[in-house]
């Protein structure tokens, strides 16, 4: 019995990532909504080792979020229906932004996730945030499954393209626009293509799967919101597939990098996403179990890349071999 854990001597692999001109020192990011606004996990783990930090979703106005219960664990994952609880744009700019600027000065790129209910919501919020020099990119949440009409933009290619066009036009040019794709669609290449045509610099995928868990004794949904978003190891193979599909059908030819996420917990999981076509990686639900997960993954990735005789992480992106 031999484990496959590679242990080469001091690998010197270039782990840096180029996200449409935005350079990250390393590939690991946090997934929106799992790491707070800034330093919440800072006493546990050295957040400055992240390639980029992604905030929870910010909306124009504060939101208190859904009633309890907001989460339920299912086999290999969890459903959440937080309902975009957040402090709103004004408080974010006043109280959280200085913390993010401080974090940025220590290494990680800063990405703010923005959600909205209308084109105007999105435009106003993204414009204000993109005006801040400490913000390197905005990730557009067009696919929150836990708020009323949250999925509309994320599932309708025409609406999505129009939204992104208007958002992109309103933003500071050198602030990158990342569009987070919903898996809750029939053909994800249609929304991916619409996002790219609309002006997305980067795609991130996937958001959670709309799902339901039922209390069979009460004959009621286990979440107050009825449905929630499924995340965690349970969705990983689904996410790997969608990343590869979008990579091959849209992103590779359009030269639009993908941030891969969905159930990543180990370096082996991360490696699957790289091979499938992701240029960078985000850890979400696993942070709830161990906030140091992305940092631990980096060590394993370095060794793996050295073992695969790659001098840089970029070399392995999308190199999945599929027999013709």
């Amino acid at each position: 019995m031999a484990t496959s854990t590679p242990t080469p001597p001091t690998p010197t692999v270039d782990l840096s990532v180029d996200l449409a001109g935005l350079r990250l020192a390393g590939p690991m990011m946090t997934a929106s909504g799992t790491c707070g606004y800034a330093w919440e996990y800072g006493d546990f783990v050295d957040l400055t080792k992240l390639g980029a930090f992604v905030t929870k979703s910010i909306t124009l106005h504060p939101r208190k979020g859904n009633e309890a219960y907001r989460i339920v664990e299912t086999r290999g994952g969890m459903l959440n229906a937080i309902g975009l609880a957040n402090v709103g744009l004004e408080v974010f700019l006043k109280e959280k932004l200085p913390q993010l600027a401080d974090m940025r000065s220590k290494g990680p790129r800063i990405i703010v996730n923005v959600a909205g209910h209308s084109v105007e919501d999105y435009v106003v919020t993204t414009q204000r945030i993109a005006d801040e020099k400490a913000i390197d990119a905005i990730e557009l949440n067009v696919s929150c499954p836990n708020v009323k009409d949250g999925l509309t933009f994320g599932t309708d290619p025409l609406l999505l393209r129009q939204l992104i066009k208007e958002v992109r036009a309103s933003m500071r040019r050198d602030c990158k626009l990342i569009v987070k794709l919903s898996p809750n669609v029939g053909d994800i290449t249609l929304t991916a293509r619409a996002a790219v045509e609309g002006g997305a610099d980067v795609l991130s995928m996937i958001n959670t799967y709309t799902a339901m868990a039922i209390d069979i004794h009460k004959r009621k949904p286990r979440l107050a919101n009825t449905t929630g978003g499924l995340s965690g190891p349970a969705v990983r193979p689904l996410a790997v597939y969608l990343v590869n599909r979008v990579y091959r059908a849209v992103a590779r030819d359009a030269n639009v990098p993908i941030i891969g996420m969905g159930g990543i917990q180990t370096w082996q999981d991360a490696a699957e996403f790289l091979l499938a076509g992701a240029s960078a990686l985000a850890v979400g639900t696993a942070l709830f179990v161990d906030p140091a997960t992305p940092i631990k993954i980096m060590d394993g990735l370095s060794s793996y890349l050295a073992q695969q005789k790659c001098a840089s992480l970029r070399e392995i992106v999308g190199t999945l071999k599929i027999d013709p």
Binding site: T34, C35, G36, E40, Y41, F44, K56, G65, E67, A68, Y69, R70, I71, V72, E73, M78, N80, I82, A85, T285, L287, F288, P291
Partner: peptide, 16 residues
């Protein structure tokens, strides 16, 4: 008590 994922103040689940 309330159902919680992280226990560390980030997941926003355990509301009272």
């Amino acid at each position: 008590e309330q159902a919680m994922a992280c226990g560390m103040g980030t997941c926003q689940s355990c509301i009272v």
